[in-house]
C-alpha cells in the first residue's frame, strides 16, 4: 500500500524538480496578462493569454484536426529519416571511404535555408503529405546520422578485439558491440532532432498545405487573428514537449543499467 507520507514525499520531489520552471513560466504568463489588461492594447496586436486560451478552446476541433495532420507528417518524416540514417551510418561504418564521399553532401543539405527550400519542395511534391515528410527528413537526418556514426566509433576497442578473438565476423561485431554502444548517442540525437522535426513539419505546411498547424497559423495570421496564431503555437510547443518526454521515457526504459549505481556488495 502506498501510504500518505510516501505519496506526499513523491509530490514534494516532483514539486522540487518542476517547481522553479512552473514558477518562472507562470510569472511570465501573469505578467503578460497584466500588461494587456492595464495598457488596453488592442487584441489584434497582442491578445491576452486568457483570450488565447478561450479562443483556442472555442476552435478546439479545428485545432485538433490540424494538429493530427502535423503529428502525422512529423512521425512519418521522422521514421523515414531514422531508417535512412540507420542505413547510411551502417554503410559508412563498413565502407569508410563512403564517409568522405557522402558527408559533404549531407552537410550541404544542412546549410540550405528552410525559407527557400520549403516552397520548392512543395512545388515539386504538391500539397499532400510527401513534401512534409521530405522536409522533416531533411532537417532531422543529419543529426541522427552523426549521432549514430559517432556512437559506433565510441565502441570500446578491447571489446571489438575480444569478439574478434572469439571468432566473431565483422557483421557480428557490429550487431553485438557497435550497435549497442551507439545507443546513448542515438538517444541524444533523438532528443535533439525530435524537436527539429515538429518545427520542420510546420515550416513545410506554412509553405503550402491543405491541413496542418503551419497552414492554420498562416490563415489565422492573414485573418488578423493573433490569438489563434498563439493558440496554434501553444499546441505545437506542447506537441514537441510531449514527443521529447516520450523519447526520454523510452531512453530510460531501454538503458536500465545507466541508472544503476556502484556496488551493493
Amino acid at each position: 500500500m502506498l501510504n500518505a507520507s510516501a505519496l506526499s514525499r513523491l509530490f514534494a520531489r516532483i514539486f522540487n524538480h518542476a517547481g522553479p520552471a512552473v514558477a518562472s513560466v507562470s510569472a511570465l504568463v501573469l505578467g503578460w496578462e497584466a500588461y494587456v489588461q492595464l495598457s488596453g492594447i488592442s487584441p489584434t496586436a497582442l491578445p491576452a493569454p486568457s483570450r488565447v486560451l478561450a479562443q483556442g478552446f472555442e476552435n478546439r476541433e479545428a485545432l485538433a484536426g490540424h494538429t493530427l495532420a502535423t503529428l502525422q507528417a512529423t512521425l512519418f518524416g521522422f521514421a523515414s529519416s531514422l531508417s535512412a540514417a540507420f542505413m547510411f551510418s551502417t554503410l559508412i561504418d563498413f565502407f569508410r571511404p563512403l564517409r568522405r564521399a557522402l558527408f559533404p553532401v549531407f552537410i550541404i543539405t544542412q546549410t540550405l535555408p528552410l525559407v527557400a527550400i520549403a516552397p520548392l519542395i512543395v512545388l515539386w511534391f504538391g500539397f499532400g503529405l510527401t513534401p512534409k515528410i521530405v522536409l522533416v527528413a531533411l532537417v532531422t537526418f543529419f543529426p541522427m546520422l552523426v549521432a549514430l556514426a559517432q556512437g559506433y566509433e565510441s565502441t570500446d576497442r578491447d571489446l571489438s578485439e575480444l569478439l574478434a578473438s572469439m571468432g566473431a565476423s565483422r557483421w557480428r561485431i557490429f550487431i553485438m558491440a557497435r550497435l549497442p554502444s551507439a545507443r546513448p548517442y542515438f538517444f541524444a540525437g533523438l532528443c535533439i532532432s525530435i524537436t527539429y522535426a515538429v518545427v520542420g513539419a510546420i515550416f513545410a505546411e506554412y509553405a503550402g498545405a491543405a491541413r496542418g498547424l503551419g497552414i492554420y497559423i498562416l490563415n489565422a495570421k492573414n485573418n488578423f487573428r493573433p490569438d489563434l496564431v498563439l493558440a496554434a503555437v501553444f499546441v505545437s510547443s506542447t506537441l514537441t514537449l510531449l514527443l521529447f518526454g516520450a523519447t526520454v521515457l523510452i531512453q530510460r526504459a531501454s538503458m536500465p543499467w545507466l541508472r544503476l549505481s556502484e556496488p551493493t556488495r
Binding site: D158, L159, E161, L162, L163, A168, R183
Partner: peptide, 24 residues
C-alpha cells in the same frame, strides 16, 4: 583472450556477458 580492462558489455547482464564466447 582476456583484454586489459574487463571489456564487459554494460548493456548485458553478468550471465549474458560470461556466455559471450559460447554465443559467438
Amino acid at each position: 583472450f582476456m583484454p586489459q580492462r574487463d571489456a564487459l558489455m554494460p548493456w548485458r547482464r553478468i550471465i549474458d556477458n560470461t556466455t559471450l564466447g559460447l554465443e559467438v
